[in-house]
Simulated assay, not measured.
Amino acid sequence: MSLRTKNEAARPVRMVFTTRAGGASSSPYESFNLGDHVGDDPDAVAANRSRLAEVLDLAPGDIVWMEQVHSNNVALVDGPQPGPVEATDAVVTTRKGLALAVLVADCVPVLLADHVNGVVAAAHAGRMGARNGIIERTVAKMVELGATPATIQVMLGPAASGRHYEVPPEMAADVEKHLPGSRTRTGKGTTGIDVRAGLVRQLLSLGVTHIEADPRCTIEDPDFFSYRREGLTGRQAGLVWLP
């Protein structure tokens, strides 16, 4: 996690991805685990979330978390929440100063923003959520709130890459059917999927062209938590908000 610069603070929208460094959690969650559902010490998670808010110059209550369930459910939020938004994998808001957070450890964290029309969203795009249209539904909800595809900016964060995301051929075929462009070959020559590649193609088909993708692979990069690499592990986060 890096500190903001003055130029960053002046931007009309903020997008941030964390790493696993700089927190209070002990092994196997060392050290900046932000997930409160993975068995980590609740006090350590609370300390990590408090530090996150402090570094980002936000109040802890101004960060909205989700109870992510690998669904295609999208929720609209208009203010601070008493707890995680239940059973959803994307949150959308028009409220300034309200940071939307997504937790991941191989799935794709997707941050979307239309600062021209004042709409932002954060989505958890794992294999099933991406296959079942979580990003398509998120963009649709943003458009309902006044966003336009041409002015939506998207950042896809660090996630499992096609080089290492090995799946059975039948699973790859199923994902490819629903998310074209996602089937690939791994570095070992086996069948794999690249969820980010499929999402980029899907976003382009929706008229969203301002897309950036962080190429780092969570499976191979020890700076990130990875469920596929470690099993029992923590979660990093992506956050987006309108200052």
Rank of each mutant, 00 (worst) to 15 (best):
G187W: 11
R228K: 03
V119K: 02
N72M: 07
T151D: 05
L76Q: 08
K6V: 15
V139F: 11
V74Q: 08
G97F: 09
P60Y: 03
T94S: 00
D40H: 09
Y29M: 12
P84W: 01
R229K: 12
M128W: 13
R51K: 13
H70C: 09
A90H: 09
W65R: 11
G79N: 08
E86G: 14
V240D: 03
P180T: 05
G198L: 08
W241T: 02
A24E: 15
G35E: 00
V116G: 13
M1I: 13
R229I: 11
T5M: 01
L203C: 04
S2D: 06
V104S: 11
V208A: 02
V195F: 05
E30P: 04
R11M: 12
L3Y: 09
T93E: 00
G234Y: 05
A159R: 03
F17E: 09
T93K: 01
F225D: 03
L204Y: 14
G207F: 00
R127L: 15
T5P: 02
T138G: 03
W241C: 01
L98P: 07
R216L: 14
I135Q: 07
Y165W: 14
L56W: 00
E86W: 15
G189Y: 03
H210P: 10
G181H: 08
A213T: 13
D57P: 01
A10K: 15
A173G: 07
P169V: 11
K177G: 01
S226L: 01
V200S: 04
G238K: 03
G189I: 04
D106H: 02
P84C: 00
D36K: 10
A21W: 15
E176D: 03
P82R: 10
L232H: 14
S25I: 06
V116R: 13
G79P: 09
G234V: 05
I135N: 14
R137Y: 14
L111E: 07
A122Y: 15
T184S: 08
G162V: 02
P109R: 07
S161P: 02
W241S: 03
I152P: 02
A46S: 11
K96M: 11
R183Q: 13
I152F: 06
D106K: 02
T184N: 07
A159Y: 09
E8I: 11
I219E: 03
R137C: 06
R228F: 11
E170K: 11
E86I: 14
E212M: 15
G129P: 08
A147T: 07
L156R: 03
F17C: 08
V92D: 07
D223P: 05
H37N: 14
D114P: 04
T209P: 06
S226W: 02
T138M: 04
N48P: 13
L179C: 08
K141L: 07
S226Y: 05
A59R: 12
P158A: 08
D223F: 06
D174R: 06
I63P: 02
E86C: 09
A21S: 15
